[in-house]
């Protein structure tokens, strides 16, 4: 079992700290979502992990060893950093073949990953003719080439069509189910929520959270009950009697915060309130994430500056 260990990792560019004393661990058998706004240090962390950038201090290891000391590293770690990295004048197949040969991976594997990523029909076309989605698939094919225990993908859903997004979701879950260590960075909350089991959240180079996704959401977003009724007055009275407060929404429904359907259902039923709808409103990753970042005052303050950078 191969885990990723990042310990006290710091990277400074001039006076700017892109990664600030970052420590976390990525374990096998689950998909870890690597979250944070653009510029939070996600891509820098991945580059440091792959030995492409040199850390100012701290360590990042794969299976206890620095990446650069691995023999035939593509057989241990597969990474997608930039879908544009393949040379436009080369065919997709030749791009993968060159990579395979460098790590003594059988050429058959090239055709396997081309088929797995749905690129087989385009394999002998020049990369320049590929759409962004196809380049993403080529980058993912390159990451899978060495059948690695560790898979690192930087924003893999970028540019994928809806079908591709469904595909990558299934792929990530399957890789984790096979016991691999899967780290997927994204700034898209709903997308990450659809595949991640665990979250590592960065803000301005620092670790903001490292928790299972369900815990992350439950700790920050309180459950709510959504009700629609033909008799708002009766609803309000019934709820008030048990200490709950209903808030009306312009769309015509009511919500009760800090409550569960198990409590509210019997209560309104006993009071004879006519119901059109009674449902749980699950907290979303997006709500939890915004709650977290709002709580981190220093992080939230220069929001407008980051927008300008982007």
């Amino acid at each position: 079992m191969t885990s990723i260990d990042v310990h006290d990792l710091t990277k400074e560019y001039g006076s700017r700290r892109a990664v600030d004393r970052l420590s976390f661990q990525v374990l096998p058998g689950r998909v870890t979502g690597f979250l944070g706004p653009n510029g939070a240090g996600k891509s820098t962390t991945l580059r440091l992990l792959l030995g492409l950038d040199r850390p100012t201090s701290g360590t990042a290891t794969v299976g206890g060893r620095p990446y650069v000391t691995l023999a035939d590293p593509l057989r241990r770690v597969g990474a997608l950093l930039d879908p544009q990295a393949a040379h436009g004048s080369r065919t997709g197949r030749d791009h993968l073949l060159a990579l395979a040969v460098s790590n003594r991976i059988a050429a058959d594997r090239v055709d396997e990953v081309l088929a797995e990523t749905g690129l087989a029909p385009a394999a002998r076309r020049r990369v320049r003719t590929y759409s962004l989605g196809m380049r993403q698939r080529l980058g993912i094919a390159a990451a899978l080439l060495g059948d690695p225990e560790v898979v690192l993908l930087d924003e893999p859903s970028n540019g994928l069509d809806p079908e591709g997004i469904v595909w990558i979701r299934g792929l990530l879950r399957a890789l984790a189910a096979e016991g691999r260590t899967v780290l997927v960075s994204s700034h898209l909350m709903n997308e990450t929520a659809s595949f991640a089991d665990h979250l590592v959240v960065l803000g301005r180079g620092r670790l903001l959270a490292d928790t299972p996704m369900r815990d992350f959401i439950d700790a920050r977003v309180h459950p709510r009950v959504r009700i629609r009724t033909t008799d708002p007055a009766a609803l309000r009275t019934a709820l008030a009697r048990h200490g709950h407060e209903a808030v009306e929404h312009p769309e015509g429904h009511w919500t009760v915060s800090h409550a569960r359907v198990d409590d509210i259902g019997p209560l309104v039923s006993a009071a004879g309130v006519p119901l059109l709808e009674l449902t749980t409103e699950e907290g979303t990753l997006e709500q939890a994430y915004l709650d977290l970042t709002a709580a981190d005052a220093e992080f939230a303050a220069p929001q407008h500056l980051r927008h300008q950078e982007a």
């Binding site: 792959l50 030995g51 492409l52 950093l81 990295a85 990579l99 790590n103």
Partner: peptide, 18 residues
């Protein structure tokens, strides 16, 4: 020069880290 475009060098050095 092809290695210095669009992060191609990163792919190359990830496959041959030395």
């Amino acid at each position: 020069s092809g290695e210095f475009r669009n992060g191609a060098l990163r792919v190359s050095l990830a496959s041959v880290p030395h």
